[in-house]
Design a protein around this nucleic acid. Structure first.
Lengths: 244, 244
DNA sequence: TCTAGTTGTCTAGATCAATAGACAAATTTG
DNA sequence: CAAATTTGTCTATTGATCTAGACAACTAGA
């Protein structure tokens, strides 16, 4: 059925070629109507390799979040549809994804207090090199990384923001603990580019994958900037919708 | 300078990634004005790998015919320009490439006497399953494979064609020994496709390379078909020109 | 001729890739 | 419950890939 054969000895591992073939085959009849793949033994026979080699390919796709294996049952395509991430003045990460994933969470990877660079200072309306708090976060849906974001806050105004976020795992609640009752998204710009090394690591992407980059500014009820952030999404797993 | 970094642990060997990078870098300033590449040690430092890994990449490109290494001097880009192969009523492989390569030759890889398939029988105007002589040949220019061709002749008319060709390494002379004083190319069709496994082996191509396929019919001075052949060229090394 | 620079060859060890086989663990079906 | 199916884990072996270091062979230039 598949025209392309595997190439040995050309510097591309068989498990990688098989993984690419499976990823391509999803949507073109490789999986059945329930999203179930043929058993490993059958795939191994079809590709003419050992079952362990197929398992290596599947393991890579499971790690990427494309497949899900269940012992005794089979291997399934994980999510046919992308997450739809709404972008609007009053949307929050926590509320926007309701119903699209069973389990959602934001991890705090790192945080620091440091002088603002030119871009951040301009966005937040700070003096040059005024101190900011920087948070490095990662969003997961059903344990698959979907976003990787960096957020900056004016240090003088939000000295405890990192602690608050670590405690609540929510920007909205961390801001509330800092005395911000309400805020809105003033602007968002969106671009797309190839994943760099940081992206492939943090979002578990393959080299060559595409990421969406959203830069947004949140302001308080007096339109004063309080948060500037840059978020990278896996374009395979997420689509953005801008709300009027 | 180079934006793309190497990716480890993704199922693509480093030597392969480096080889692709070098092939791409040719023409964009990687080689100097004499076509000389930076020394292996410098490339190794630039890519952040061991010198042996760079050597593996270069060895693959030398085998492909893209590069040429000279001990003590350096590594050079082999041929910036493609061979131009003329296609016309009276052109011969031996005469067409004059001056474009120092050394030209045609190897006889295999030959057989067998019943003609439908395509060959139709082209040569034979009875169904009439016997033909099939020759498998490879053309080299400066020791780089540039073409791989299969030719069919009516066995009853040219029983000794394989011997004659093996002796003379020339279709024109083999036909002359068979009593054909003159012949011309009646028609040629050209198509392009991706290299299959046979092509990558015989023409020393990378998987994914492109081949040009030319099918042509030679007829004698009475317009009677005498030879049908199919030739595959490496699209990286050859271009075809059709002469009015 | 001597020296510096460059490619070629060899040895050795560490890790990755692929094969092979056996059996455990979980699920579904009869 | 029993059997069949399927994924998970383990051991072992072979070859490919990558690193490291040393030195030979060849070329070009001082």
């Amino acid at each position: 059925m598949s025209k392309s054969a595997l190439h040995r000895g050309v510097g591309v591992a068989l498990w990688r070629q098989i993984g690419d073939e499976i990823r391509r085959g999803i949507g073109t009849g490789l999986a059945d109507e329930n999203g179930r793949l043929p058993p490993e033994a059958e795939l191994a026979a079809r590709f003419g390799v050992n079952r362990h080699t197929v398992r290596a390919a599947i393991a890579a796709l499971v790690h990427e979040g494309v497949l899900r294996s269940e012992q005794g049952r089979g291997t399934y395509v994980r999510r046919q549809k992308r997450l739809t991430y709404p972008i609007g003045a009053r949307t929050r990460f926590s509320t926007g994804l309701e119903g699209q994933a069973r389990d959602r969470q934001i991890e705090l990877l790192d945080h620091a207090r440091e002088p603002a660079n030119a871009t951040v200072a301009a966005a937040l309306g700070l003096e040059p090199a005024e101190e900011v708090i920087r948070l490095e976060m990662r969003g997961l849906a059903d344990d698959i990384p979907v976003s990787r974001s960096t957020a900056w806050f004016r240090a003088a105004q939000f000295p405890e923001i990192a602690d608050y976020f670590a405690r609540t795992h929510s920007i909205t609640q961390a801001l509330a603990l800092s005395g911000i009752k309400d805020y809105r998204r003033a602007s968002t710009t969106i671009e797309a580019r190839h994943a760099d090394d940081t992206d492939t690591r943090d979002l578990r992407l393959s080299p060559g994958a595409i990421v969406l980059v959203a830069r947004s500014l949140n302001v308080d009820s007096n339109d004063k900037p309080i948060q500037y952030s840059q978020t990278r999404f896996s374009a395979d797993r997420v689509e953005l919708t801008v709300q009027g």
